[in-house]
């Protein structure tokens, strides 16, 4: 089937004269002029603006949205480069249409994301001998190495400039850095105490082949997890800006001290300097403090994926021990039995909210009273009513018809589409609860789907089932098994342009690295949680995604061996109206019916306990066993 012609009035057209810009485009002319003025002052011919913050966060706070401010493009992934005459953004397929809607004609859009393509463009635009500037606190060691390698054989100089030039151009309009209180999670919501976690990391360091004396933690989920602390510096992520330097004899936490209550200071043992006392230092001191520590007889372990070049460059190379991920990332990836139980229980409550929403939609969409935005607001409200809720885990993706073809479309109060029984609707949403983070996607159709829509949906479901029921050897990397989620789509020439899953955990970020199915994810191990989320997007018509969270568990095999499989902990049935059972194999059908039985067992009693009888009846009906 050919993609439908969109009319494209919603996107910019820079080839006409005058250029045609949609209302959603941002005028960046003055912003670019202010940045170029700074570039001139610093003698830079190009300036690279990545999409992250000083902690390599995927979601960033308002003061860190530099790429968004300079380009107008609000997608969560994408790098901008500004030269004296040109400006360009590189982003992946999830955001191409969004970028065309939001950027004005000052900007080129490059539909790729590799650093090599960015470097190639800079080499073509910047003359020999000129400087290319970057903020070292916005580049991981890994990405700096890739850029550096790209420029090595050229005569352009990659220059680390610790003053952020976008911030200077942004000036007083730049939002302030957050200062909300940082609080300790009640112990019933944590898998271990912070002292136990510190001991585990120290033990890891002792057993490390290069015996580091200290580990520097830069990612925000590392400090939040290690100390069982949370705050709200970043939307949807309960984090606080911080670093930690954990050594064999001391613990230093770099954070604004005024954000702690007296009780939390006591919880952290901040009034001593013993090995189990947390010494607080100001956030801005991290570079100097690491430099001072590195002057001793020490070896500092860093995970290069999350440590920025800004901190890395002050550690002498002979005192560095580098791994891809810090020990905290690796230990955190495997949830202990208490953490698993907490996460599962948050998913039961979350399923209640999603089921309530689906029942509500079924009743109200035919009346024509629901739109994408009011729907998103309602499901967020349902989650907020759940115990231990701390709001959504990301901006709800509520997309009807052609809007669902944009994998990360979110409606606004001003711009949204009415839900209708005549088209498909995709809702991808999640909650932050004190016991767990959730993330689930369901796609539904309340009318008569086309044969192609049913086939595409069923094949996405087959991909989800094939990966979910897979039995594989322990310590297999996710990338090795990822194709199982795509096979049913591939065999008829369909595919999707995003990853197949991501780690998720206990009240941290919704995409909890390093678990997942990509080349830089760590090998699968018992106790990890990952999402499984194949999809299919038909530009201009509809989008499908079926996402569940799964726990990695031991598999029972006919012959003895160390094998793993997945156990779904998302408990919401798929849309029967869109499943073509004729396409399912007997094994897939059997798996699906067994999953539906699990949903009944886990969520049914909770619905009854709350007297949600309409929802209970709906669940019974939608989890009736399917037959070929």
């Amino acid at each position: 089937p050919e993609p439908k012609y969109l009319g494209r009035e919603d996107v910019r057209n820079c080839s006409t004269s005058p250029e045609r810009l949609p209302v959603t485009a941002v005028n960046t002319t003055m912003r670019l002029a202010a940045l170029r003025q700074q570039m001139e002052t610093w003698n830079l011919s190009a300036y690279i603006i990545p999409d992250t913050d000083a902690h390599m966060s995927e979601y960033i706070g308002k003061p860190d949205k530099r790429r968004e401010w300079i380009s107008g493009f609000t997608g969560s992934a994408g790098t901008a480069v500004v030269t004296m005459g040109k400006a360009a953004v590189w982003t992946d397929s999830r955001y191409w249409t969004q970028a065309e809607r939001q950027m004005d004609c000052n900007w080129e859009l490059h539909k790729e994301v590799s650093i090599s393509s960015i470097v190639a463009w800079i080499l073509a635009e910047v003359p020999d001998g000129q400087n290319v500037g970057f903020d070292p606190f916005l580049f991981s060691v890994d990405s700096w190495k890739n850029y550096d390698q790209g420029f090595q054989d050229s005569s352009r100089h990659l220059l680390s400039v610790t003053t952020n030039l976008v911030d200077v151009a942004w000036g007083s309009e730049r939002p302030p850095v957050p200062s909300q209180p940082i609080y300790a999670l009640p112990k019933e919501f944590t898998g271990s105490t912070w002292q136990e976690k510190v001991s585990a990391v120290r033990s890891y360091m002792e057993h490390h082949a290069k015996t580091p004396t200290g580990v520097l933690l830069s990612a925000l989920d590392e400090t939040a997890w290690l100390f069982n602390l949370r705050s709200s510096d970043i939307p949807y992520n309960p984090f606080f800006y911080s670093y930690a330097l954990l050594t064999n004899s001391s613990i230093r936490l770099f954070v604004n001290k005024s954000r702690f209550s007296l009780e939390t200071l006591q919880y952290l043992n901040t009034n001593c300097t013993l090995p189990m006392c947390v010494q607080l230092e100001d956030y801005s001191q991290v570079r100097d403090s690491v430099k001072a520590y590195a002057s001793g007889d020490v070896k500092i372990l860093i995970g290069v994926s999350y440590t920025t070049y800004g901190v890395y460059e002050v550690i002498p190379k002979e005192k560095l021990v580098t791994d891809t991920y810090s020990p905290v990332m690796l230990i955190k990836a495997v949830k202990n039995s208490k953490e698993q139980a907490l996460l599962k229980s948050s998913h039961v409550r979350d399923a209640v909210a999603v089921i309530q929403y689906l029942v509500w939609l079924e009743k109200n969409v035919p009346k024509g009273t629901v739109d994408e935005f009011s729907g998103a607001e309602y499901i967020d409200e349902l989650r907020r009513n759940e115990n231990f809720s701390s709001g959504p885990s990301f901006e709800t993706i509520s997309a009807s018809g052609l809007n669902a073809a944009l994998a990360h479309y979110s409606p606004t109060k001003e711009l949204h589409r009415k839900l209708s029984s005549d088209e498909m609707y995709l809702v991808d949403s999640g909650g932050q609860y004190w016991d767990g983070t959730t993330d689930i996607t369901r796609t539904v159709h309340w009318g008569t789907p086309t044969a192609f829509q049913k086939e595409a949906y069923t094949r996405v479901l087959m991909g989800n089932i094939d990966l979910s029921r897979l039995v594989f050897p322990a310590a297999t990397s996710g990338r090795v098994i990822e194709a199982f989620a795509r096979r049913a789509l591939w065999e008829v020439g369909l595919n999707y342009g995003h990853g197949t899953g991501h780690g998720i955990g206990n009240f941290l970020c919704v995409h909890e690295w390093p678990v997942g199915f990509q080349y830089n994810n760590i090998a699968m191990a018992k106790g990890m949680f990952t999402s499984i989320e194949p999809g299919y997007y038909h530009d201009g018509e509809f989008g499908i995604r079926l996402e569940d969270v799964a726990l990695v568990v031991e598999a029972k095999t006919k012959y003895p061996g160390d094998y793993l499989t997945f156990e779904l902990v998302s408990f919401v049935p798929y849309d029967r109206n869109l499943i073509d059972v004729r396409l399912l194999s007997p094994e897939q059908l059997q798996y699906l019916n067994r999953y539906y039985q699990t949903i009944r067992e886990n969520v049914g009693p909770e619905l009854q306990r709350r007297q949600l009888l309409e929802e209970f009846a709906w669940l019974e009906q939608h989890t009736e066993p399917l037959s070929a």
């Binding site: 994301v113 991808d428 995003h498 999809g535």
Partner: peptide, 24 residues
């Protein structure tokens, strides 16, 4: 929420370096 596909560039660079150092 769907994760984006990570660029393979650094892996290619790492593989190329590994092959080069092995050959030499």
């Amino acid at each position: 929420r769907a994760p984006h596909i990570i660029s393979w560039t650094s892996l290619w660079v790492a593989s190329a370096l590994a092959i080069l150092s092995w050959s030499s």
